[in-house]
């Protein structure tokens, strides 16, 4: 599946011996098993605000689905893992527009295998879209779960923390979503259209990596690898 992909746009590296690719739109690919991993889709986050009186544009699910379909088209995986918090809350499926629900169904059922990992926002992902549900799964020498383990966890691929990194240069700065890794384990960026980010310099990452992890920062057309020491906190 990798030969269809423009390699310069992709960051290739190993996590705990397994070769992976970080895509600039925020999905992870494990070529040897034809696997695409995506995390924190947060479907229907927009409509959850409407419940509280803030009428955010109800199109976040649609945008997220479009980008996900494009990523799947780009990488042609056999298997997709949605790494938890796919649905913003337990009623998200009830608020989802019929058209979006149909799009999601079609996407799930086109794949050989689709795995919903349970997340804290969606402890029981709704069954009507198809796919399997589990709390974690092992593939290609890696273990996939939603919440990263505190302390060493070689081979773990997780989401939950929404990593992003900030870098500064000549008095100006940029802050984007990123993959966080130290070579033994990895945390995926959040993929959902309305998801914010947590700086990799935050303590939450230190508890997992024993320090600030390196960041694979998502640029416009490619992923930029940035060493931990070049990442700065949002504020001192």
């Amino acid at each position: 599946m990798t030969d269809t992909v423009q390699l310069q746009a992709i960051c290739r590296f190993r996590v705990h011996e397994t070769l992976v690719l970080a895509d600039p739109d925020g999905v992870l690919v494990v070529p040897e098993v034809g696997l695409l991993v995506v995390s924190d889709l947060h479907f229907e986050k927009g409509s959850s605000f409407a419940v509280g009186g803030q009428m955010l544009p109800p199109y976040d699910t649609r945008t997220t689905l479009r980008r996900l379909a494009e990523a799947i088209e780009r990488h042609q995986p056999r298997t997709v893992i949605a790494l938890g918090d796919s649905f913003h809350d337990t009623r998200a499926d009830q608020r989802m527009h019929d058209e979006d629900a149909a799009t999601l169904c079609a996407l799930v059922n086109r794949l050989e295998r689709w795995i919903w990992i349970e997340g804290n926002h969606d402890p029981a992902p709704p069954p009507q879209f198809g796919g399997e549900v589990t709390d974690e799964i092992e593939l290609a020498g890696l273990v996939f779960r939603h919440e990263p383990t505190e302390g060493a966890a070689p081979g773990e691929v997780a989401g939950h923390l929404h990593p992003c990194a900030k870098v500064r240069r000549k008095g100006r700065s940029v802050r984007n979503r990123c993959f966080a890794t130290d070579g033994t384990r990895l945390i995926l960026p959040a993929f959902g259209a309305y998801t914010g980010g947590l700086n990799v310099c935050d303590d939450a990452f230190t508890r997992c990596f024993g320090g600030t992890p390196d960041a694979m920062i998502m640029g416009r057309d490619r992923v930029w690898p940035v060493a931990a020491k070049a990442c700065v906190p949002d504020r001192y």
Binding site: R12, V15, V167, R169, D214, I217, W224, P225, V226
Partner: peptide, 22 residues
């Protein structure tokens, strides 16, 4: 733009050093 800042600080060596790129 933002991309140029990223380009400045990014290091391809990083992968070689820290992640043993093939």
């Amino acid at each position: 733009g933002h991309e140029s800042i990223l380009e400045d600080v990014s290091s391809e060596d990083l992968i070689a050093e820290a992640m043993r790129l093939d």
